[in-house]
Design a binder for these strands. Sequence first.
DNA 1: GCAATAATTAGATATTTGTCTAATAATCTA
DNA 2: TAGATTATTAGACAAATATCTAATTATTGC
Lengths: 92, 92
Amino acid sequence: MKQQEVFKAMADPTRRAILKRLQGGSLTAGELGEGFDITSASLSHHFAVLKRADLVRTERRGQHIVYSLNSTVLEDLARMLIDFFPNLGGKK
Amino acid sequence: MKQQEVFKAMADPTRRAILKRLQGGSLTAGELGEGFDITSASLSHHFAVLKRADLVRTERRGQHIVYSLNSTVLEDLARMLIDFFPNLGGKK
DNA sequence: GCAATAATTAGATATTTGTCTAATAATCTA
DNA sequence: TAGATTATTAGACAAATATCTAATTATTGC
């Protein structure tokens, strides 16, 4: 996990919202952008940041690019936080 | 938990190192800064960011300010990640 | 009270980041 | 193949951030 990239990616509310939306399953760039009040160019930028952090994966399907969550990285992140701070309640 | 503040605070490597150092127990601002190659003014800035996110607590002891980890917030963060992404392996 | 020590705040600056418009790339369909 | 659709890249710009030096605040001990 590229820790630095992951944390930076998570630091933006739009990107967290994108990830949240991907919980429900894969979506195309277009679908993913619906309801955000920014241009598709800006969205593409956010997608790129998420990809760089390996938080999302992409696949072309015709004219569309389908985004899906790479939950491994999020798992790693959560685990990292828990390990990192041993007194964090949890059954490790 | 002020999610946005917490994520932003965690996005900087110096601040993560500070938190890590506090795992071992409370430290004064001076002790906390040892080994970082930045000025104490810059460190103070980082401390302020961590305080704003409520990741650390402070207490004056004479001339010193003692910093300690507020692990509650980190707990919340880890829990949030796990809840947020249901398919994250864990026993919730 | 005054000098010394510890830490923060003020002000300046360079870099990074989020956003925009315009241009480009890739694919579909008529 | 030309036009339409979907998405990304390029280039510009404003806002946010990390850093620095200098000034200020708080406290100790002589």
